[in-house]
């Protein structure tokens, strides 16, 4: 009887532990961007923001928006929302052209990730 009780307890514990598991992602990667990757805009955006799938550390968050001339058009320091997941930066006046958003962040699990994507600003009448 005692053995049966132990076996049942073990099965219940294993079932609970495994039942509570949900596949998820580690490290921070973009979940949503604004402007989005590859998007063509009719008017220049005032800021770029990236929502990550896991919280990031503000101290090491970097984001820049480079034009075709290689100049960084981001203005000031990036800001992070209180949940630690959305990183934004204000932009200067963007002329029509292709822009590359480069980001580098550290997830709260201490690991580093980085990446880049482009968006396009259309010229008047284009």
């Amino acid at each position: 009887m005692r053995t049966r009780g132990r076996t049942a307890l073990t099965i219940l514990t294993v079932a609970f532990v495994l039942g509570a598991a949900v596949p998820a992602r580690a490290h921070s990667f973009p979940e949503q961007e604004s402007p989005s990757a590859g998007q063509t805009l009719s008017a220049p955006p005032g800021e770029v923001s990236i929502k990550f799938d896991a919280p990031i550390e503000n101290l090491f968050a970097k984001i820049e928006v480079d034009g075709a001339d290689g100049k960084n058009y981001a203005v000031g320091d990036p800001t992070l929302t209180s949940d630690g997941r959305t990183l934004s930066i204000k932009l200067g006046a963007l002329a029509p052209g292709v822009y590359t958003v480069k980001w580098a962040v550290v997830c709260i699990d201490t690991h580093h990730t980085n990446g880049s994507y482009i968006f396009t600003v259309k010229g008047p009448g284009a």
């Binding site: 514990t13 532990v17 495994l18 598991a21 596949p23 998820a24 580690a26």
Partner: peptide, 18 residues
């Protein structure tokens, strides 16, 4: 062993899923 197996499977499923 019982605890390590259960908790290890939990962690592996969370990170890798199916």
């Amino acid at each position: 062993v019982a605890i390590l197996t259960a908790t290890g499977l939990f962690a592996a499923y969370q990170r890798i899923g199916w």
